[in-house]
Design a protein around this nucleic acid. Structure first.
Length: 385
RNA sequence: CCCCCUUGAGAUG
């Protein structure tokens, strides 16, 4: 049984879902380790829907086990379902360090640093993972002072922390800084390579990206998907398609969403729609990509129905509100726009950002409500730019 | 033999 489990785990780690599934089905017996490996295989390969149904079917017939709960909690957080993750955390019969860390990371990744800090302070035990989760939460939410303070107290810096720094430069579009951190790393792993690749992709440095992609020691799903995204950003659809259809070891939920986004971003609505209805698992990001594509191309009716569809299945986020407001603006639907704008705060607790004010001012201005537009500008909680 | 931190997918007139 132990060797079967080891085999299963190694397929799971390398993203060979079919093999993992076949191994799981062929095993003479299952224990908690096998169940958990299968659950993690689904979650880490982007099959969030399948992970959830697997967990539900398993937890109906097995004793509650902290490792299974922890894996499912992490999967929910990775899929952006913070509220569900929190509910699940509260249901866990017995917590351990990993449960605390998972919940902490979920808060931090969703920008809720207040709750993250609160949890961090109350955790009965902590380790380097807990500290790293806090650190990256700070850097990704622009709380650099807090991050520095915490960094200063570290006895030594490890590769995960360096990679996190590299990634935060990449996300901020500071290619130079990212490159410098990368070059100075004494040893690099795949995450380091992938992060630098992402830095190039974000800034549409297609040649550097391509060059790096060809030079890196290995590729995994992350590398290839990043490269597809780089082609998409640079409007090289044929290259993106080529890599997606014939350069991937397999296709997961994220790579499907990536190619959908490539079509959507480049105005190929029909192809995007086809992927959307055909992809094995839709998710809130593929929905968001469709919504954005409709908005930006002036299909306000489809935008609205996609928004409703999305709202029924997932919790809309700030980005989906930007899209729907844009579509109201181009369809001159001032009243609808105001409804969405107020509903965003009151029904979903999403605080309006600059982008939302920008959309609203645009909407009001175009609709001839200039004085309302000025009033909104004067009362928003930001300096106008 | 399995679970937690760092890298890939959506918008911005």
């Amino acid at each position: 049984l132990v060797s079967w489990n080891a085999l299963l785990a190694s397929y799971a780690q390398n993203g060979h879902m079919e093999q993992a599934k076949r191994t799981f089905e062929r095993m003479p017996e299952h224990n908690l380790v096998s169940l958990n490996s299968m659950l993690v295989a689904y979650a880490q390969n982007g099959h969030f829907g399948r992970a959830k149904s697997f967990f539900d079917s398993v937890s109906a017939s097995y004793e509650a086990n902290t490792v299974l709960w922890n894996s499912m909690l992490a999967a929910l957080a990775r899929d952006g379902k913070l509220a569900e993750a929190k509910d699940m955390f509260d249901e866990i019969p017995q917590w351990n360090l990993v449960s605390w860390n998972s919940m902490l990371a979920a808060f931090a990744q969703h920008g809720d640093m207040a709750r993250a800090k609160d949890l961090f302070d109350r955790m009965p035990e902590k380790n380097v993972v807990s500290v790293n989760a806090m650190l990256t939460g700070y850097t990704q939410n622009g709380l650099l002072e807090n991050a520095k303070e915490m960094f200063a107290k570290l006895p030594e810096v490890n590769l995960v922390q360096c990679n996190a720094l590299l990634a935060s430069y990449a996300q901020a579009g500071s290619v130079e800084n990212a490159k410098q951190v990368f070059d100075e790393l004494p040893c690099k792993d795949l995450v380091s390579w992938n992060s630098l690749l992402a830095a190039y992709a974000v800034k549409s440095h297609l040649n550097s990206a391509k060059d790096l992609f060809d030079r890196m020691p290995q590729h995994d799903m992350v590398s290839s998907t990043t490269m597809i995204a780089a082609y998409s950003m640079a409007a090289q659809l044929e290259e993106a398609e080529c890599l997606f259809y014939s350069g991937l070891p397999h296709r997961d939920e994220i790579s499907w969403t990536c190619i959908l986004g490539a079509y959507a971003r480049n105005g190929r609505l029909t192809q995007a729609e086809r992927i959307f209805t055909r992809q094995p698992e839709q998710n809130r990001i593929s929905c968001g990509a469709m919504l954005a594509a409709y908005s930006l191309n002036g299909h306000s009716h489809q935008a609205r129905s996609t928004f409703d569809y999305m709202r029924a299945l997932y919790t809309p986020d700030d980005i989906s509100f930007v899209s729907i407001l844009i579509s109201c603006s181009s369809g001159a639907r001032v009243y609808d726009g105001r409804c969405y704008f107020t509903s965003m705060e009151s029904d979903y607790g999403i605080r309006a950002k600059k982008q939302h004010y920008c959309c609203m001012v645009d909407l009001l201005g175009r609709g001839g409500y200039l004085e309302h537009a000025y009033e909104l500008l004067a009362n928003m909680p930001f300096a106008a730019d």
